[in-house]
């Protein structure tokens, strides 16, 4: 089929969705081929540096960590937490700063919405792109960690889909929040939230060390659920808690997609 009108007629395309989110991935790939390499490498190297600095540096001081019924080497303890962090960072980079740029500076989404594409195509496409980035970071990190002999069992491979879900959740939510931001100052708010969440969510030590009230706050935040989810698969300790974590992210993804597509419509189709 080679006629734009026939294509628009043949699919049951609605005002929100033309059924073509994959063209966003195609566009992402074209742009990625020639630019954007530096942040990609940085995003990959960061968790590896954390692992080396904390695992081998702090690890020598800390020794073993007791979590639940298990006592494990400190480096091994922080690895899954850093994997979850890595997935989050990859997803956040694309879904916040890159999205902000395309919304407010290059007006790319506005251009896309002057074609038959709908807001949901854009939301799904961009979030999937961010998810893929999170996934690539996770695989890279897992490869390094495996090379260092830190993967406890074959189960750890399941940490990859778990990390993808985490990336999907953050990408979806990140894009939704970014769609409300108009200035660089507002964007700074994202880092303001991310940094403490990263430090306190239990990737570097068990959150049981906190007072009760702080533990409860951390347990309400997405990164803790992400870390726990990845950790559960990493060590092959899948229990009912895993479903809570998964549900948390499913809800996060649904809210993010809904808000983002509504917001894109409000911004560019009114």
């Amino acid at each position: 089929m080679s006629n734009a009108v026939d294509i628009a007629m043949s699919r049951k395309s609605t005002a929100m969705y033309a059924g073509r989110p994959q063209v966003l991935l195609e566009r992402g790939w074209l742009a990625f081929r020639s630019t954007n390499w530096v942040p990609v490498v940085t995003g990959f190297v960061e968790p590896v540096l954390f692992l080396l600095a904390f695992g081998y540096g702090m690890g020598n001081l800390v020794g073993d960590v007791t979590t639940g019924s298990k006592t494990i080497d400190y480096t091994l303890f922080i690895a899954p937490g850093l994997l979850a962090n890595s997935a989050m960072n990859g997803a956040i980079y694309d879904s916040t700063w890159n999205v902000f740029w395309k919304l407010n500076e290059s007006k790319l989404y506005k251009t896309m919405l002057s074609t038959p594409l709908g807001p949901l195509d854009i939301a799904l496409g961009e979030i999937t792109w961010a998810l893929i980035r999170g996934l690539v970071y996770s695989i890279g990190f897992l490869t390094v960690v495996t090379a260092l002999g830190l993967t406890p069992s074959f189960w750890a491979i399941l940490a990859i889909p778990a990390a993808s879900l985490v990336a999907f959740g953050f990408a979806s939510f990140g894009m939704a929040i970014t769609s409300y931001f108009k200035t660089y100052q507002q964007m700074g708010f994202i880092n303001f939230v991310l940094l403490p969440m990263t430090l306190f969510s239990g990737s570097l030590y068990p959150i049981s060390v906190y007072p009760d009230w702080l533990e409860k706050i951390i347990m309400a935040l997405p990164l803790w659920h992400g870390i726990e989810l990845v950790r559960a698969f990493w060590f092959g300790e899948v229990n009912s808690g895993v479903f809570v974590h998964i549900s948390y992210f499913v809800v996060m993804i649904a809210i993010g997609l809904f808000v983002t597509s509504r917001r894109l419509r409000a911004l560019f189709l009114r």
Binding site: M1, S2, A4, M112
Partner: peptide, 9 residues
């Protein structure tokens, strides 16, 4: 890519 936004082959 603009053609792809229209779903063209």
């Amino acid at each position: 890519i603009y053609g792809r936004y229209f779903g063209l082959s």
